[in-house]
């Protein structure tokens, strides 16, 4: 059996990294939107279990807080739950009334679970009626570039989502990898040599001298400085 076909997900093929994100047209709090409407920019599609619930409310406040940061990175946010548009509107208005924070991004009202099913957002082991806390980072050409899954009980770290977007954009711009806990401005990892020749070059002093901020642990782990995006 293909591991990406999930019996518990109605047989739908689950998203995989670096493959096209499942297409959708969905009703949101900002009208009907399609995945293609986000083409050319980055998209963070995320699900939450339900409106008017405590952990989700803290998350929406946190997502609203990072929205300006994401916009500076040409990245949009799109929420989703298996609730109606009226429920979403009432919740968003309640959040603003109680906290003063406006929720600036659209939320999909996925009552027929079409998007949730396509993206494998319902985890029957947790709940058969709610979406788990899923995050999909989709790049400007519509490929799934990262996926995060959190359980119902645990609110996400939205700063990690910003860091993740930074790392993916740095990888695309400079053809590098990023080390653990990397943040914008830190040194990046030079791709591992794939031949003996390049490995030897990586160990040379000439390579070190012409590489800005060069730092070598060994031939397979070298870092360098790059300009921030």
């Amino acid at each position: 059996m293909d591991a990406t076909h999930d019996d518990a997900n109605g047989g739908a093929r689950l998203p995989r990294l670096n493959e096209p994100a499942p297409d959708f047209e969905a009703t949101t709090t900002h009208g009907v939107v399609r995945l293609a409407d986000f083409a050319g920019g980055w998209l963070v599609l995320f699900s939450h279990p339900a409106d008017f619930t405590p952990v989700c409310t803290t998350e929406f406040l946190a997502f609203a807080a990072i929205y300006p940061e994401l916009q500076r990175r040409h990245t949009e946010l799109l929420g989703l739950s298996i609730d109606s548009v009226s429920s979403h509107i009432a919740w968003v208005r309640n959040i603003e009334e109680k906290t003063g924070v406006a929720i600036p991004f659209p939320i999909i009202a996925d009552l027929d679970r079409a998007v949730a099913t396509a993206y494998g957002m319902v985890m029957p082991g947790e709940s058969t009626t709610e979406t788990s806390r899923c995050v999909f980072v989709i790049d400007p050409i519509g490929r799934v570039r990262a996926m995060i899954y959190y359980p119902l009980t645990t609110g996400r770290n939205t700063e990690e989502i910003v860091r993740l977007v930074d790392a993916l954009q740095m990888t695309d711009a400079r053809q590098v990898a990023t080390p653990a806990n990397w943040r914008s401005g830190d040194k990046v990892i030079i791709p591992t040599p794939s031949t003996i020749e390049v490995a030897a070059e990586r160990m040379s002093e000439e390579f070190a001298a012409r590489t800005e901020g060069f730092e070598r642990v060994d031939w397979y782990l070298c870092k360098k400085s790059v300009e921030a995006l």
Binding site: G31, D37, G41
Partner: peptide
């Protein structure tokens, strides 16, 4: 831009 695209389509 996504809002413009969706709106113009509508």
């Amino acid at each position: 831009l996504f809002r413009v695209r969706a709106g113009l389509r509508e």
